[in-house]
Amino acid sequence: MKECVKNQKNEKFNTYLQVYKMQIIRSLTYKFDVYGNIIMQSIIMLASAFFWKALYAGNDSVQGVGVSDMMVYTVVSSMISVVLTTNVERRISNSVSKGTIAIDMMRPVDIYKVFFAENLAGVTTLIFQNLLPILLIGSIFIGVPVPASKEAFLLFVLSLFMSFCINWFIAVIFGMFSFKVIEMDALIQVKKHLIRLLSGSIIPVWFFPESIKNILSFLPFVYLYQLPLDIYIGKYDSASLTKGLIMQALWVVVLYLMFRFFKKKAEDKVMIQGG
């Protein structure tokens, strides 16, 4: 009996592994997408670097951040944006609008785990396809982004993993709104812009007024980009680091609970409608 359960578990895991593999193949198929994405993302990164260089002309350090830190910031931020790529909200809303969600949910696998496996696979491919080329291009044209210390790098990886989870849970919760709202495009845009502007991905939160910085520290956005970037550059002390990581972990938990809650509600709704 025990053996059987174990086998079943293995089989399930293999299913997700299969999904993961298929997705990697799928993402490799479109050559043009790959090159196009690298070129576009590199242009954006270079433009950012020039932007900050121009701003820093005549200023050695602003808010305790020097121009070389800002260059590291630009390159690493571009790399993080690769890791935080997801289209799970669109996957869910498409499946709802096409009416296939009921079938998806009836399957003997957990559809959200399938989505997660797909997403993880997507990111794995992207690390080779986009992240490394961007790192290379950034290192050549902007400067090698050296982390502040070994310890900083390890903490960065930990924090980035939590960023990935926060990003994924936000996306999946947004996707579940499509059970209520037919037209998701606008909502996805709202989310995208909020993250773009409030997470520190484009303009570091350092340059925001103190009051806004305070408010942002209670919202999940800064834990997507700003915190891992702070850690990478070494712009932290033990107090701010502890506080940051605890808040980040807290957001992972809160969003996970919200995800569970909405998942239950969504399932009930599909059951009542009968597909």
């Binding site: 709202v181 037919i182 037209e183 495009d185 606008a186 909502l187 845009q189 709202v190 812009h193």
Partner: peptide, 8 residues
Amino acid sequence: AIIGWLLS
């Protein structure tokens, strides 16, 4: 969608 775009 109107509300969404008006916000976004």
